[in-house]
Design a protein around this nucleic acid. Structure first.
Lengths: 199, 199
DNA sequence: TATCTTTACGAACGTTCGTTAGTTATGACT
DNA sequence: AGTCATAACTAACGAACGTTCGTAAAGATA
């Protein structure tokens, strides 16, 4: 539907470097001259490949949005119980984050610099994505696998836990993405306390 | 030790408005002219009250840091069990956030625009603050009230859950800060699942 | 060889940035 | 009445901003 980020390798390179700079310094604090110099060309030359600075942000943000949707799309028709399904959703979401750390940080922090039209689309898409997680939790409550909690609230907490991973995750750290996902799923399902049954 | 934000009401007003603008648009995307116009004076007049734009950021960030430390200071010598203490820490931290929403958002998002010296001090203070939570969890593990988890990791998750509250909390919403704190504490201690004992 | 497209460049545009300088009105203290 | 500090103003600084322009080199196509 939306066209791909690029067929040109140069454009792809520009966007990739922008992901890193926007993440490190923020969108507003990154100048086109900064970006150009990191690419190895002059600022003016960027405009042979991209239309504007803001367009780069759009590529990054909506590219990530698509990644998130794509990751959970194959899960939506599963018949598993909510208790089994939630960890799978969690692993999918975390998988996207850790394989696109820079872009994830930009997606989560810099979206407010989108222009009004794109901003509106972004908020809409995010809402739609979040609601898919809420659904799972709601089903868990309905069939009494989960406690009677406020699903929106708990999904907020869940996203908070997952979305700050980019802030501390190291590829060579002690935990793999799958282990992180399992830990978070366990935490949300069972908590920290020792006085519980089940595993 | 560090002098107070201000004795002048004008300076206080400038900083308060800056908290809101920095939160809404980000530090870099907020100009001194934006700030001045929100205050109702000219940009140049700001400099009768503050030394520089970056100094404003410092006031905000380190003011919040002090709030966080002050909130847990009275808890540090308590003799409670970790299971009882952790919720109190959580409530203290959340209390600071919800009573300083704008400043909290700036504290959490805009600290990287501090200048090197202040940046270093910030990171150091944050580490020190986080470690106080880690200690509680570690004690919980030591006395077998908590499962044998990685305390740093779980404290990260805890902070993630707490620190994104500014993103969705509404003063007139359904949950009070104390209820939010209790929910988060319950979640981390007991999880979502229904197959558990104790409460 | 002639033509066209791509991608780089240097120069420059108009705007905005944070900040400084110089000045003036106000009001408090002597 | 005279002095002084405060806090506002207008004007302006030099630098940096995103972006546009005209052009030139290189490579593909014919």
């Amino acid at each position: 539907m939306t066209s791909r980020p690029s067929n040109s390798p140069r454009k792809e390179q520009i966007i990739n470097i922008a992901k890193n700079l926007f993440r490190e310094r923020g969108y507003s604090a990154t100048s086109m001259r900064d970006l150009a110099s990191a690419v190895g060309i002059e600022a003016a030359s960027l405009y042979n490949h991209i239309k504007s600075k803001n367009e780069i942000l759009e590529w990054i943000v909506f590219g990530m949005a698509e990644e998130f949707f794509a990751a959970i799309r194959p899960l939506e028709n599963r018949q598993d119980t909510p208790e089994m399904l939630l960890p799978v959703y969690i692993e999918a979401h975390i998988g996207v984050i850790v394989t696109h750390m820079d872009a994830a940080a930009v997606f989560l922090h810099e979206w407010r610099h989108l222009e009004p039209k794109s901003l509106q689309r972004f908020i809409q898409q995010r809402k739609s994505y979040e609601s898919k997680f809420v659904e799972v939790v709601q089903r868990g409550i309905d069939c009494r696998q989960f406690q009677e909690v406020e699903p929106d609230f708990h999904v907020m907490l869940l996203f908070s836990s997952m979305n700050w991973i980019y802030d501390w995750y190291k590829e060579d750290g002690p935990l793999s993405p799958e282990e992180i996902a399992k830990q978070i799923a366990d935490l949300f399902l069972h908590g920290l306390s020792n006085n519980r049954i089940g595993q």
